[in-house]
Design a binder for these strands. Structure first.
Lengths: 128, 128
DNA sequence: TCTATATTTCACCAATCGGTTATATAACCG
DNA sequence: CGGTTATATAACCGATTGGTGAAATATAGA
């Protein structure tokens, strides 16, 4: 709800062409023609992809004669990383809590006694 | 090109409703009705969001009586995190090389000599 | 069995997306 | 100036997205 920029950032990252462009830019800034080279698509398509990346804040554009070099803008990537980072515990050591949940659920699947929503309710007992 | 799963993962993360759902699931598994509660949209909409998250591998679904509880699946989030992690240097200490580039660009924008061909150097002097 | 609850599927819709070709703009160069 | 190069914009198109309401499905329970 309070997040708006992450929308465009993640959306931009959802396309393999755009991720490849970012990977390319990680090696240094480059012209659009260079960027387009590896791809089997027209220049306007690349131009659109660059606009998406730029609007997402993932790249900056410059002007150098006829060239409009693109360069990586790490800030947006950091935002995305920060968001995901909050879930790091879930794929690291914190199988303790989550796995415990699942195990308990697994074990007591058919023992529903106090209201059918009791299961969803014991979300509530999340004492860390 | 070589990445396929990241497409759907990042695409799934691009929607604020779906990110909110994940945030909710971080506290424990829940029923669809529970998940839908905070949002001003119909149940089918939530159902669709859950399907997107499931296809992206971000959540798993269970069956418990009439309920189809959703729970977080950290693996997909880790994949996304891993991808972004490769750029970590760019927002951390590694401004050395990148910033040097930008600084040099900034400084020599108008006087294009041998320093200026160095800027765009990576355009690969194509020997056509 | 019949009914209520939880959830999904269906059919539809407008908006956005990712691509195209054709055209326009901008800057260099002879 | 005129031509070439680099890039962007315009108009268009089919596919996908994110939502809807209505109907179908699954399970529990009186």
């Amino acid at each position: 709800m309070q997040s708006t920029s992450l929308d465009s950032t993640f959306a931009a990252l959802a396309d393999p062409t755009r991720r490849a462009i970012l990977a390319r830019l990680a090696q240094g800034e480059t012209s659009v023609t260079e960027l387009a080279e590896p791809f089997a698509m027209s220049m306007p398509a690349i131009s659109k992809h660059l606009k998406v990346l730029e609007k997402a804040g993932l790249i900056d554009r410059g002007r150098e004669a006829q060239y409009r070099p693109a360069r990586l803008n790490p800030a947006a990537l950091k935002s995305a990383a920060d968001w995901i980072e909050e879930y790091r515990q879930f794929w690291e050591h914190s199988f303790d809590r989550l796995e415990a949940y699942l195990a308990r659920l697994q074990a007591g699947t058919s023992e529903g006694e106090q209201t059918s929503n009791a299961k969803r309710n014991d979300r509530k007992d999340k004492e860390k």
